[in-house]
Computed example of a mutant assay.
Amino acid sequence: MSSIVIVDRSFASGYGMREALLHAGNSVHVFSSYSAALTLLEHKKIDTVVVEFDNDRPTTEFCDAVRRLNIPIVYSAPPVSADDLRQFGFRRNVPKHYPTPTIFLPFRPARAGYSARAL
């Protein structure tokens, strides 16, 4: 029986993987953050850590900390979507939704003696 930690930040496949590993007789812990998972890793003997592949700073720092604890890491595929470029190994720094352009119109107060109805 192995003790496995799964870090599933996208909530995509962690609980499905958990059910399969539990059915096989393993002890499984699922986390959605690296800090909580690292706390458990420092206090309990864990055999393997499963992390979604990503190349952002929190993921690399977490993996470095796990390597210092001499725990093997298994990388799982991130969820696939058209806008998710992590599947290719890089991240886009452009927002998905561009802000709408804003046009500023100067305000001119009405001149004395004129009204909107007269125009």
Rank of each mutant, 00 (worst) to 15 (best):
M1S: 07
S2T: 15
S2V: 08
I4F: 11
V5W: 00
V7M: 04
R9C: 07
A12H: 06
A12V: 07
A12L: 02
S13K: 11
G16N: 11
A20T: 08
A20H: 07
L21G: 00
L21S: 03
L22V: 14
H23P: 04
S27D: 12
V28D: 00
V30N: 00
Y34G: 15
S35F: 03
S35D: 15
A37G: 04
L38D: 05
T39S: 15
L40Y: 06
E42M: 08
T48P: 00
V51Q: 00
F53K: 10
F53V: 11
F53A: 12
F53E: 10
D54L: 02
N55F: 08
N55R: 11
R57P: 08
R57T: 13
T60L: 09
F62N: 00
D64A: 15
A65T: 07
R68C: 03
I71F: 02
Y75L: 14
Y75S: 12
A77D: 13
A77R: 10
P78F: 01
P78I: 01
V80G: 02
V80H: 13
D84T: 05
D84N: 13
R86K: 09
R91Q: 14
V94W: 02
V94I: 14
P95Y: 00
P95E: 01
H97A: 08
H97K: 12
P101N: 09
L105N: 06
F107L: 13
A110M: 15
Y114T: 14
Y114I: 09
S115Y: 11
S115M: 12
A116S: 12
L119G: 14
